[in-house]
Amino acid sequence: MSAAQDDVKAPKVDAATSVIDIENLSLTFKTNDGPVHALSKIDLSVKAGEFVSLIGPSGCGKTTLLRVIADLEQPTSGDVTINDMSPHEARMQRGYGYVFQAAALYPWRTIARNIALPLEIMGLDKAEQDKRIAANIELVDLQGFENKYPWQLSGGMQQRASIARALAVEPDLLLMDEPFGALDEIVRDHLNEQLLRLWAKSGKTVVFVTHSIPEAVFLSTKIVVMSPRPGRIHDIIDSDLPKDRDLDIRDSKAFLDLTHRVRVGLRAGQER
């Protein structure tokens, strides 16, 4: 991200502004075995610059909630606004970047061409495309791999490339759906640290889905604990960990207290 772009966006990063507002949101899937209540009466507000994690067991609707925000699923009832727009309008204006569980890089495109994909669709000129590709490749530390094909990269590098692709759109809002779920713990720790640094540097708002408690606590300023059947919010925990943190913080008392609270919340939500 160039300094000039950060200047333009600076006024938006204001702690008071709501980026995402969700009121009384419910979503029911109709299946052959009857209706499935994926989400029930969700109320959530995400402020600009926050790092919000959605955590919960499988089937609690955390991915579905993220997909509703991204306009990839339609809610049955309730209101969702993203920067005062409907999710559909936000999607049409490319108001967010989305990172999927799998890297979803197109195998016939090199890493650079994969990052160029959204830029081509946005209709940016070649010079601007090249500038953004170079900047974001550097950001995720993939210099020298521009002309490699996805299968020539490890899983962690592929996921980094997909993050670079999402960032190249230069969205204020980043939606991440268990992006590191398929990676081993060492790579995951490393990428968590990189992601945190990236977030601190760019001032973006991040909504992050995970089922790993340490990951959620380590990354977030706000942890949303969800419980299944029907998917709902059990607890919202504000983290008071310093914004500038590294992996060593995981041994601190504050971190362990937060971890404990999340774990208790998850268990209570499960038993209810």
């Binding site: 991204a70 306009d71 990839l72 999607r91 049409m92 204006q93 490319r94 967010y96 970047g97 989305y98 999927f100 569980q101 799998a102 979803a104 197109y106 994909l117 959204p118 081509e120 669709i121 946005m122 759109v169």
Partner: peptide
């Protein structure tokens, strides 16, 4: 997932056809 990706870019159906 690759189709969803195209939707998040609000790509037209022609772009989805041509690029994916």
């Amino acid at each position: 997932i690759e189709l969803d990706l195209m939707r998040t870019y609000s790509a037209s159906s022609f772009e989805t056809l041509w690029k994916l």
